[in-house]
Amino acid sequence: MIFTSREIAQLRRLEILAGKVLKGELRGEREFSRRGPGSGFREHRAYVPGDPIRMVDWNVFARMRELVIKEFDAEEALDVVLLHDRSASMRGAAALCAAKVVGALGAIALGHLDRVLWIPASGEHARHAESFTGRARVSDLLEALDGGAGGATDLLGAARQGLPRAIRGGTAFVISDFFDPAGATGVLSELLHRRYQVRVVQLEDSQRLEAPRPGRTRLVDAESGETLVLDISPATVRAYERAREARAQGVRAFCRHRGIGYLRLRADVPFQKIVRSIISRGWLTP
């Protein structure tokens, strides 16, 4: 289990907090403006041939002698997509933090009867994409998160394989370090194309990203296994820091340009703070 008992209690409080933010008491908690099967009356309209007879308001016909159709607001569950980077670059503190954030967001969403689509982006992402519905599935989600991770980062591939073919919209959270050779723009554009409200949480494990001390070093890529022998010098470290910052700023600039919510956080920040930050920003609201 990725959460301790104390963290589970905190998770419950976060759920309550999210509920207050949403200001809703019913299932779904979010009203969609399209008509459909639901319990909330919306309006009457004149009957046109082809309308189902069971939708005719016979009380109105008895009083007014007019055939009217009774329409209701469509009430359905929100799709919350959790694109979870579980690649090898996320080992350690980043992986744990990402799992906790995903678990917390999933639990909150399931608690509000939303449908959670968890897409782990790792070498085995095609097999692990899984959909959860209902409060009872929280434990299943958390159990799924407890599994191992590894492989190369392929956020776009994971999104394409894990997302439903039908364009349904919803909220998509991307929790990753974005150390994806393909870059971040592909997956984010794909999510936008599928009409998701995209939220990005970029996690950085400062301990793993810390530059080694100067000297001759054989650098091994955690995902691809490629190596590079380098004489680390203060100048090299400075250039590395610049490249890392430039990459992060690139993701941020893209998100800002496309109206995507963006959070850049250190992996050693407690997940509660991260989730609170997400809630306070209203990212759980469509």
């Binding site: 050779p181 494990d205 054989r218 650098l219 022998v229």
Partner: peptide
């Protein structure tokens, strides 16, 4: 003797 070190993302280096 180059010491070995795993890095999350080699292209940065």
């Amino acid at each position: 003797r180059a010491r070995r070190m795993e890095v999350p993302f080699l292209p940065l280096w």
